[in-house]
Amino acid sequence: MLSNHVKLMQFFSDIKVVAGRKKLQKMIYILQACGVPFEEKFAFHKFGPYSEELSLRMEELCNLGFITEDKMEKSNYVQYQYTMTSDGVAFLEQFPLDMPDLHPYVELLQGKSSRFLELVATMLYFQDLSRHEVQQKVHIVKPKQKYNDKEFAEAWSLIDKLVQ
């Protein structure tokens, strides 16, 4: 019963604010890849792992009044910012769920750019390959992003911390 909604709200109660739909998608995917039991189904898309289920669930949470979605006009694009409402907090209190402590993960992901999170999510998507093959695959599926060695090194370092 709505347990997948509650899991997302648990995430929001920890992170407070997520600026950007792409960022949210990649964060949830990364957490799922690290064993956090989010059940949204992801598939690979042009901009990395993406879940339609997650998009729709977020719409539901917004329509129910548990999360607010604020449209922020940036210089040449629109960004959506998500925060939990007081109704959301009250709902979460009624539905305590046994979830791992998300705080250490959230601390690591907070403040990272969506470009970087896209890289990390994509690398985790190919985690069955060797590290060398992962980097090759990232260059194949994301030639336009032109990720450099420094970014890969940072991404590996983050992945190592996340899966510890």
Partner: peptide
């Protein structure tokens, strides 16, 4: 969301 269906999404912020 228990039966997700891909509505058209304009893909702001490179969502898709």
């Amino acid at each position: 969301s228990d039966l997700p269906y891909d509505f058209y999404r304009p893909g702001e912020e490179e969502e898709r």
